[in-house]
Amino acid sequence: MSTLDSHDSERRDFLYIGTGAFAAVGTAMAVWPFIHQMNPDASVKALASVELDLAPIEEGQSITISWRGNPVFVRHRTAAEIEEANSVPIEDLPDQDARNANLPEGTPATDVNRVIDGKDKFLVMIGVCTHLGCVPVGEAGEFDGWFCPCHGSHYDTSGRIRKGPAPENMPVPQYSYVSDTLIKIG
């Protein structure tokens, strides 16, 4: 068997690698639609926003509404609850990010950053435990906020994680005041 000269073998290597790369890219492009079809479809994404009138919610009362299939807690907090939330030094919080979709990422998790400025009586957040997705129970737990019965996570009156396996504060969804008492979530 005669050996190929180096010029020829380089050409073959190039063809070999080129063919392989072309096949790999082609396969990846063919596979992508089969993966992407599992992502939220247009009809799911269309369920974007929901409006809520806060006026009927009495002080100390919470309501739960459904937004994109998830529960959203809306709580009219008492003065004592707000004070309790404000009295916590930020260093004591396991998650020091406000997790507020209306503020940039990395904003410190002070109580005022968890609500809309000037409307700190109303706490609006997605009522899903950041551990494994259960819905926490209100006015419960060691920090007078929420308690998740599934795996024992305690949240405070600002919805911030204080104790237990959950890694993050309950997230505040994107929302704004349409009028003085009407909010639009999403």
Binding site: M38, N39, P40, D41, V44, R68, G69, N70, V128, G133
Partner: peptide, 17 residues
Amino acid sequence: VTLLWGGFTVDNPTLNR
């Protein structure tokens, strides 16, 4: 997780798949 759910939570697309 979003890929598994096909939405923002466990819902109809999840049940279907």
